[in-house]
Design a binder for these strands. Structure first.
Lengths: 192, 192
DNA sequence: CAAAAATATGGAGGTAATCTCCACTTGTCA
DNA sequence: TGACAAGTGGAGATTACCTCCATATTTTTG
């Protein structure tokens, strides 16, 4: 599906250049101050070429986002294979926050673009969602996590962390959300 | 501050018309498919008038948002005055979800606009944040809620609920987030 | 109540970003 | 190496945004 047609050599190169430049500009936060045409020039590419590879700003973002998500998914798989379920889940959620904090600009830009009604990025995060779902399911199965709350709720909380990028106390609050989610996920005692 | 100059009668009328139309169009979700100029016409107002009242889409959204927030804040005050702290907090959070669900289109549109890096709406939600902070603080004071997590974390979770508007299982997941947050907020037992 | 002063209106048109189109260049395959 | 396919760049059409001001409405004043 992803590889319908084997790209020609130069096309591949331009595409890479666009992605590399995108990552840079996303990170510095200048993406929205830049005319899309100028972005093309910045990447050393003609306008037409830019538009053929990535018809919209969102399409470009999606490609970058996919890379980020892939990294996180690898991490999830690794944790799942080496730690007890509950611990794997906890570590992963904290790692997501770490990762986001380490690439704040990128996360900002992606979150902003993601909000555009296109929903283009929803597609890209499917893999991430699957990873979280697996981690939660495993922890539920071994009894460390309650089974009456969907993994989607955890995704939603993560979404909040990403979307609320402009809060002054972002880091502390993000940690707080994770703490709440993890505490909330613990199998509740039989008392009300 | 809000009432620096008493608006002229016709100006008041036009302003109202713009806000009313905005609420409609926000709710139906057509706001982004509409040229801003056409929006003016739709409200029966000239382009210039639109721009004088609301210089940007965000400014318009902010005005609408303020109304929503005010409603919720009234609710918060009422709950705080009539229920035990923990219950007031729980009820309020669930009410926010109900309210959002009842005005899904509006919430969608506002969330999308809020994500624009402008941060214009951050201002509008200050009151909401204050309400949540008060509710949490009261519950902390009477010992039903842990004191090591900031109210900002709760805001962040709410933010996630609003921002993740396009998830198919939105309602169930939103309820899940609230459940997790409330469970997570309970003063943890002395065991690890 | 009439006229003057202040305030607000609408939409034509300037400005600026987006995106398309195609004559030309580069890569691939036999 | 030649012929065909695939890709490129950027000029210019298109579209949306926003400003400006001659005109209209409201309010105040004498």
């Amino acid at each position: 599906m992803t590889a319908g047609k084997p790209l020609r050599a130069d096309a591949q190169r331009k595409r890479e250049a666009l992605l590399a430049t995108a990552r840079e500009v996303f990170e510095t936060g200048d993406f929205f101050d830049l005319r899309f045409d100028d972005f093309a020039r910045l990447a050393g590419v003609g306008t037409g070429t830019l538009y053929r590879h990535f018809p919209t700003r969102e399409a470009l973002a999606e490609a970058v986002y996919r890379g980020e998500v892939a990294t996180l998914c690898d991490r999830a798989r690794h944790l799942q294979a080496t730690l007890p379920a509950a611990e794997a889940l906890a570590t992963f959620l904290r790692d997501v926050v770490d990762h986001t904090a380490a690439h704040k600009g990128l996360a900002r830009t992606l979150a902003t673009l993601m909000a555009d009604r296109s929903g283009a990025l929803a597609e890209g995060s499917r893999a991430l969602e699957q990873a979280v779902t697996d981690l939660v399911a495993t922890a539920v199965r071994d009894g460390t996590v309650r089974d009456d709350v969907d993994a989607g709720a955890v995704m939603m909380a993560l979404h909040g962390i990403g979307a609320a990028h402009d809060r002054p106390a972002w880091r502390a609050e993000a940690d707080g959300v994770i703490t709440l989610v993890l505490a909330g996920l613990r199998r509740p005692r039989s008392d009300g």
